[in-house]
């Protein structure tokens, strides 16, 4: 038995990679939300938080590299496993009826793909701040707050004030949370950290966490569409 081969070549090993990367990415999603929710504390807090991240490149870049590596591993394992799955059933059923499985569990690949597309957009939108895709015509890089820092508060308010952009965010986050409603419990299964006693709890907890994350994330675009922050900017 070879450790490397066991993990990267076997079906179970690839599931471990998927579970561990998924678990860490999930923790990032939680931390990211906590950070972003500071927008509701006002401009000072969110700008200070953003500035803290952006100015400490010794921390920022290692974290980014790790996140990228996790995404690569997560997608690589998903692709490898999915190709094997497709190959395992060359002839489909004519009258297939799903039984015993949740919608989320059957659509992990689809939700994963769309979430990945959403993440690319999100990075171009708020991280790289590419002007052509924010649909507001404004240059986010030019937003500077009174302390001379990047005005993240204004970027968020302006960014989400476009209905199309917010709608895509809500869809993206929605699918992310659908993905997590299955994945957050399933990763415990893949790692073998689940038994009859924990299973119900973990399945329930995954759904609750997914819903909370969804509500947390959409609260920002929804609040902004409803007028939050406009007054502060004026």
């Amino acid at each position: 038995m070879n450790l490397f081969a066991n993990i990267f070549k076997s079906s179970l090993g690839k599931k471990y990679i998927m579970a561990v990367s998924g678990c860490l990415l999930c923790l990032f999603v939680v931390a990211h939300l906590i950070g972003n929710l500071q927008v509701f504390l006002g401009q000072e807090y969110i700008d200070r938080y953003g500035n803290l991240l952006q100015t400490n490149i010794e921390i920022l870049w290692p974290v980014r590299v790790i996140l990228i590596a996790l995404v690569v591993l997560h997608i690589w394992s998903a692709a490898a496993l999915s190709l094997e799955n497709k190959a395992a059933r060359p002839v489909e059923y004519a009258a297939y009826r799903p039984i015993g499985s949740s919608y989320a569990s059957r659509t992990m690949l689809m939700s994963g793909f769309i979430v990945f597309a959403f993440i690319i957009y999100h990075l171009l939108h708020f991280t790289a701040q590419v002007r052509y895709i924010n649909l507001t015509g404004q240059n986010f890089k030019a937003f500077i707050d009174p302390q001379g820092r990047h005005n993240i508060f204004k970027m968020m308010v302006v960014g989400f004030s476009n209905g199309w952009v917010s709608a895509f965010y809500i869809l993206g986050v929605g699918l992310l949370c659908l993905h997590l409603s299955h994945g957050a419990s399933s990763m415990f299964q893949s790692m073998g950290w689940r038994n009859a006693t924990y299973r119900k709890f973990l399945d329930g907890a995954a759904r609750v966490v997914a819903v909370l994350l969804f509500l947390g994330y959409i609260s920002i675009p929804v609040a902004i569409l409803l007028g939050y922050g406009k007054a502060a900017l004026r």
Partner: peptide
Amino acid sequence: GNCTVTASCEAVCPKEISLNFIAK
């Protein structure tokens, strides 16, 4: 193929064998 934890297997198993054994 590989397990994606859909749990459909335990739903059709004539002996109702639990998915928990896969975790084990």
